[in-house]
């Protein structure tokens, strides 16, 4: 059995000591102060949104004229996402006896699939961050720089731990997309992430990729 030491207790405290606390709504100034490698503990009301949600937002709100049937959700997102965060996540959710939902498991999903959409969503809704895993590429990095946003990397697979930072499922929209793909409006407390793409054009992913490519070439030449 894994015992809490040496790994357990120490690091939670360490993380808390080292981490920057951010609470929604987040200001541009707070975002500009963050650099790649910074650890963040995020609190406040955020929304999950992944593949279906991004496609939907682009088609209905950003490229299309919002149909009447979608106006209520548009207003919700327009207000809710300003200064807030979209989390790339398809949670496991339980409906309690009192009718409210709760997150059971809620780690990040791979973000790169949202690369075609993300910069436009950041700009349109005034997002200050997206949370996911695996990082994103140039279009999103440029969007972060231009509009004052960061990419926050959550720990892939840490689903129980992250679900426990979700204090409340406030609401859900587009549940007909399926549980993983719906917009879940959640209140989180001290959600742990790492800045891997900042608002100054730096990307940890690009750096690691370039360094590992050099090493790969050496191995193949040897």
């Amino acid at each position: 059995m894994f015992s809490r030491d040496p790994a357990g207790e120490r690091s939670t405290e360490d993380t808390n000591d080292m981490a920057t606390k951010l609470t929604v709504p987040i200001s541009e100034e707070q975002i500009r102060a963050l650099k790649v490698g910074d650890q963040v503990l995020l609190s406040g009301i955020i929304y999950t949104g992944r593949d279906a949600a991004h496609k939907y937002m682009i088609e209905n709100f950003i490229k299309g004229d919002c149909p009447d049937s979608e106006k209520a959700l548009y207003e919700e997102l327009k207000q809710g996402l300003a200064g807030s965060v979209i989390y790339h996540c398809g949670p496991v959710v339980r409906k309690r006896d009192d009718g409210k939902y709760e997150f059971v498991a809620a780690g990040p999903t791979t973000s790169i699939r949202e690369e075609p959409y993300q910069a436009d969503v950041i700009e349109h809704f005034g997002l200050r961050a997206v949370i996911g895993k695996g990082g994103m590429r140039d279009k999103t990095l440029t969007g972060c720089k231009e509009h004052g946003a960061v990419y926050l990397h959550a720990i892939g697979g840490a689903a129980t731990l992250i679900a426990d930072t979700c204090e409340e499922v406030v609401d859900v929209f587009k549940l007909d997309f399926g549980v993983p793909e719906a917009f879940w409006k959640i209140r989180v407390k001290d959600f742990p992430c790492v800045v891997t793409m900042d608002s100054h054009g730096e990307s940890l992913h690009a750096k690691v990729q370039a360094e590992s490519e050099g090493k790969l070439k050496k191995l193949l030449a040897g």
Partner: peptide
Amino acid sequence: GALQTILENVQMSRETGRPICQD
């Protein structure tokens, strides 16, 4: 730090009978 979080998560999932990963 990532491995730390992972190890804590593994322990929590086992103790509470919840999925290690949501996927």
